[in-house]
Design a binder for these strands. Structure first.
Length: 244
DNA sequence: CTCGGAAACT
DNA sequence: AGTTTCCGAG
């Protein structure tokens, strides 16, 4: 609920054994490595400073020695329909993660976040997130960086209130695929849930969430080519910024 | 540069 | 499924 659906996908999903491009980008961005790619002026926006160098790094990670920006950028463009990224038009080599507006649109009362820091004082990657980290708690109060991704957090329930014991899991008992070691270490508190409670964010029913409507959209896309103009109209309502 | 179709790859 | 590769079009 706090983040778009894709943000909950772990870096190394059971299906695909390889790193995904957007994880890789977030990783470089998080390191503040700077040379090849940096955060842009807006929240979630990033600029590829050295396209060919970035492509080379990506190629090394994937074992594709002939990777170049032409091919990498094609992969980025596939993210448009998946709603992971969109292009910042007019700005060369500039793209933007779609999680920013989703959060701000739904919670207009949140303070806008100055985003000049190149790194966060704590790690947000799955490997290091697997234990309860008090510094996350602290940082969460000054919500700010796009790097604050939920990755291995259990997905918060779409329903307002449930049995206390169910809070840690989308389903109870947890489905067989659930990595219990990952989930249980979030105790005593699920940071994401504490996040909502601390901030007194409004609770919406699942039907009210634009995100769920986006998911519905993806279902339609997946189910085959249908009425595309209708989809675009839906998109405009949800992501005004993403359209021109 | 940027876009997106098409086909191939893992 | 998520790219990688190739490419014609704007």
């Amino acid at each position: 609920v706090l983040f778009p659906d894709w943000a909950y996908k772990p870096a190394w999903s059971p299906g695909s054994r390889q790193v995904q491009l957007w994880h890789f980008l977030l990783e470089l961005l998080g390191r503040g490595e700077g040379g090849a790619i940096t955060w842009g002026s807006e929240w979630g926006e990033f600029v590829i400073k050295d396209p060919e160098r970035l492509a080379k790094l990506w190629g090394e990670r994937k074992g594709k020695p002939h990777m170049n920006y032409d091919k990498l950028s094609r992969a980025l463009r596939y993210y448009y329909n998946k709603r992971i990224l969109h292009k910042t038009k007019g700005k060369r080599f500039t793209y933007k993660f779609n999680f920013n507006k989703l959060i701000l649109v739904n919670y207009p009362s949140l303070p806008t976040c100055p985003q000049n820091t190149t790194s966060v004082p704590f790690s947000v990657f799955p490997s290091q997130l697997s234990f309860y980290n008090p510094s996350i708690d602290r940082a969460v109060h000054s919500i700010c960086h796009p790097l604050l991704m939920p990755y291995s957090f259990p997905k918060p329930l779409p329903f307002p209130q449930t049995h206390p014991i169910q809070r840690q899991f989308p389903l109870f008992p947890p489905p067989s695929g659930t990595n219990l070691s990952e989930v249980s270490c979030l105790s005593p508190v699920n940071p994401a849930l504490q996040f909502t409670q601390t901030l007194n964010w409004p609770v919406k029913s699942s039907a009210e969430w634009p995100l769920n409507r986006v998911m519905g959209l993806q279902e339609r896309i997946r189910s085959g080519p249908q009425d595309k103009s209708h989809d675009n109209q839906e998109d405009r309502k949800i992501f005004p910024e993403a359209m021109h």
